[in-house]
């Protein structure tokens, strides 16, 4: 799943169109749009709004843990050309001076830069940094929802010393984001792939739910069952979980014992030989 957090409707529109997102009918504090895999919320300007919108979206998507979280939006920079796309390798809260370092290990497609989150528009651009108003709130909140490698800020330069904020129009903002939508979608797809690859070897045999439905497992036993099924899948990936013995087990305890016995018959180190 991908969760986008954007400040303004003008920034969001190209993504809403690209992913054919529809408006979520549930009452929410911030507008939410979605399709099967993608969620987007428009948080308004400022870090408090961004943090609140992340929190709300996290609840809307039912606390999904391994989602990709992206803050996309426009930013100022002293001298980067208008339209340049950057991911943030550091996010500085200009007010508190707290700094985060989003790992860039999966961000191979885009150059990175420093990003400073300010409380009022920055027009002097004092440092070699992008300037926005949401990233600190977004990042600190989204970091609680997923692993840091897939929590990222992608910024498009909208103003610089030559081309100030006074020359920004709503239409211009939409066009800046629209020009980068394809690459943003590709980056997101890569991030999502990475989370899938982590999940791939956590996938559990469908026979597990059959067992859970048939017998009463305590919470501890459920945990044991999960790990035994995982161990079986690791050491004998071709073997289905359910065999005759498990199917005929009469209690949760018998299921666990049968699984342990089955593991004992498998080669210890299947790579050898």
């Amino acid at each position: 799943m991908i969760a986008y957090v954007l400040a303004m409707r003008e920034e969001a529109q190209p993504l809403i169109s690209h992913f054919a997102l529809q408006r979520c009918k549930t009452t929410t504090l911030f507008p939410v749009f979605y399709n099967a895999q993608t969620w987007l919320t428009i948080c308004g300007v400022g870090k408090a709004n961004a943090a609140a919108a992340v929190t709300e979206l996290f609840h809307v998507v039912r606390h999904k843990r391994d989602a990709v979280w992206l803050n996309v939006g426009i930013a100022g920079h002293a001298d980067l050309p208008i339209g340049t796309l950057r991911s943030a390798h550091s996010v500085l809260d200009g007010a508190s001076r707290q700094r985060w370092y989003p790992p860039q290990v999966l961000m191979r497609r885009v150059a990175s830069g420093a990003l400073t989150s300010v409380d009022a528009p920055e027009t002097a651009y004092p440092d070699d940094s992008l300037y926005d108003m949401e990233s600190a709130g977004f990042y600190s909140a989204a970091l609680r929802c997923s692993t840091a490698e897939v929590v990222q800020c992608l910024k498009i330069v909208s103003d610089n010393r030559e081309h100030g904020t006074d020359r920004l129009s709503p239409q211009g903002i939409t066009e800046l984001v629209a020009a980068q939508v394809k690459i943003i979608a590709e980056i997101c797809a890569e991030l999502r792939e990475a989370t899938y690859s982590l999940r791939a070897d956590q996938e559990i045999d469908p026979g597990l739910s059959e067992l859970l439905g048939k017998h009463r497992f305590s919470v501890t036993q459920q945990r044991q069952l999960m790990r035994l099924a995982q161990r079986l899948a690791a050491r004998a990936p071709q073997q289905p979980l359910l065999d005759d013995e498990l199917a005929s087990a009469r209690s949760s305890r018998e299921v666990l014992r049968a699984l342990e016995q089955r593991l004992d018959t498998l080669p210890v180190f299947p790579h050898a030989g």
Binding site: D201, R235, F269
Partner: peptide, 8 residues
Amino acid sequence: PGEPLLAG
């Protein structure tokens, strides 16, 4: 979780 060594 899918590493056989750790599932031994």
